[in-house]
């Protein structure tokens, strides 16, 4: 009786081993990884959003990880191209907007009230950006000027562009402006994430 049980168990184990070894493969013979599909899906989502925004009469920003560029578009027209360092920018998010305009780095001390007073010149009197300004996106990605010895954003991760480009984008983009982030490989179809 015990032998029968043993044989039965061996049968199941053998079958499961065969099942496990013969894991399904893709049409090209490579192992199927869900990350490839997820990456391709993300690329397609970004491209679809770009297409949708290209039909709208509004500014939008494209963050292109393929060529390390930020591009400002209106409709289909290319308004500005900014070379950027995107190495520290985190994972791709599907739906992005410009969240806020930061005039300068503020202390996050718990003893300091984050609200600004009525005489805060940066908020009420200043109209244009300085090289210490930054743009915050809805996924907390920061766009700031190239770090130098005077930059307050030097240690902060984010997309870095030249101060001239930052000033132009800071004024051109309003809060809520849509942002499309294109992952690497979006143009070539290389789905290796």
């Amino acid at each position: 009786m015990a032998r029968l049980h043993l044989l039965k168990c061996l049968g199941w184990v053998g079958a499961l081993l065969v099942f496990a070894i013969g894991a399904p493969t893709g049409s090209d013979g490579t192992a199927q990884t869900p990350t490839n599909e997820a990456h391709l899906l993300r690329i397609n989502t970004s491209l679809a959003r770009w297409l949708e925004l290209a039909n709208r009469d509004t500014h939008f920003l494209v963050i292109d990880h393929e060529v390390d560029e930020l591009r400002l578009y209106h409709h289909t027209a290319l308004l500005r191209t900014c070379k950027a360092d995107l190495t520290t920018v985190a994972a791709v998010t599907d739906s992005l907007t410009v969240s806020s305009h930061l005039r300068r780095l503020r202390s996050a001390s718990p003893y300091v009230s984050p609200s600004v007073g009525p005489f805060d010149w940066e908020r009420y009197l200043s109209d244009a950006a300085t090289r210490h300004s930054a743009l915050l996106l809805s996924d907390e990605t920061l766009i700031h000027a190239v770090a130098d010895e005077h930059s307050v954003w030097g240690a902060v991760a984010g997309a870095t562009i030249s101060s001239v480009d930052l000033r132009a984008l800071f004024d051109a983009l309003t809060d809520g402006t849509p942002v499309v982030r294109l992952p690497k490989g979006w143009a070539s179809g290389d789905v290796t994430p």
Binding site: L7, L16, T25
Partner: peptide, 30 residues
């Protein structure tokens, strides 16, 4: 005595069928 062999055969058969269907299903989305 036939049970282990039968279960083995059934599972292998299932694997073959599933493998084909899974291969089709997994290649189709990609």
């Amino acid at each position: 005595r036939g049970t282990p062999l039968r279960s083995f055969c059934v599972l292998v058969g299932l694997w073959v069928v599933t493998s084909y269907s899974v291969t089709d299903a997994s290649s189709s989305p990609e």
